[in-house]
């Protein structure tokens, strides 16, 4: 490689050292210049990025709420709530002719390697329409069978509700419950089952508010 003399100064600065201030000026000019470039790029991409994020959300929602259950735009019909621990939850509502026919929201489970982000859809009767994993850091090949792409384990939950199976059976088989764990991975499914159960409890606790049931005579 034709590397020049390592001791040579990088810039062709004159032999007499320039005043210290010049460094600050050069650094400042570079910061300003690249700051401007980044600001312009941000402006150019901000709409597209927002559109992509919206598409992502729509995609995950359409997997847990069937299309024939609603005639509204789920992403636009949201409700801000907080769960038992005070964490914010954004609820997406499915409506047909104005009536709430189902809700969907994100829940968090604790897996083997951190949080597992799930989206669950529930119909007005409290039955699960579907659950999907949005993001996780579980071990590839072991814990990642919770993804619908890698296995149909997660489809098992469709149609279940808070009372079906009963509370003491809302566990993986190893803990005396209803649901299969994976060979070599129990913590991941355990976390998911617990999260879904928690999500159903949230629905039961806030049913009236979620479904906009009018309470008469109050």
């Amino acid at each position: 490689m034709s590397a020049p003399d390592q001791s040579a100064a990088i810039a062709n600065v004159p032999a007499s050292k320039p005043p210290m201030g010049i460094h600050a000026v050069i650094l400042g000019v570079f910061c300003l210049g690249f700051g401007l470039i980044l600001a312009v790029t941000d402006r150019l991409t901000v709409d597209d990025i927002a559109a992509r994020a919206l598409e992502d959300r729509q995609n995950s929602l359409s997997q847990v709420i069937p299309d024939d259950l609603h005639d509204n735009n789920l992403v636009k019909d949201t409700l801000q709530m907080s769960d038992a621990n005070g964490k914010d939850i954004t609820v997406y509502r499915a409506r047909k002719a104005g009536q709430v026919t189902g809700v969907a929201y994100e829940i968090l489970g604790t897996g083997y390697a951190g949080e597992i982000k799930l989206m669950m859809g529930i119909d007005a009767a409290g039955k699960l329409l579907g659950v999907r994993v949005l993001a996780h850091k579980e071990t590839p090949g072991l814990g990642d069978k919770i993804e619908v792409k890698k296995g149909d384990w997660i489809l098992r939950f469709t149609g279940l509700s808070l009372g079906n199976p009963p509370a003491e059976r809302w566990k993986v088989k190893k803990d005396g419950g209803e649901f299969d764990q994976f060979a070599g991975a129990t913590i991941t499914p355990r976390g998911v089952v617990r999260a879904i159960h928690g999500g159903l409890k949230f629905f039961a606790a806030h049913k009236a508010e979620l479904l906009e049931v009018k309470t008469n005579g109050q």
Binding site: A9, I10, A11, N12, V13, P18, I22, H23, I26, L27
Partner: peptide
């Protein structure tokens, strides 16, 4: 490269 001084 000729504008960037050694120090910074």
């Amino acid at each position: 490269r000729n504008r960037i001084t050694q120090e910074i």
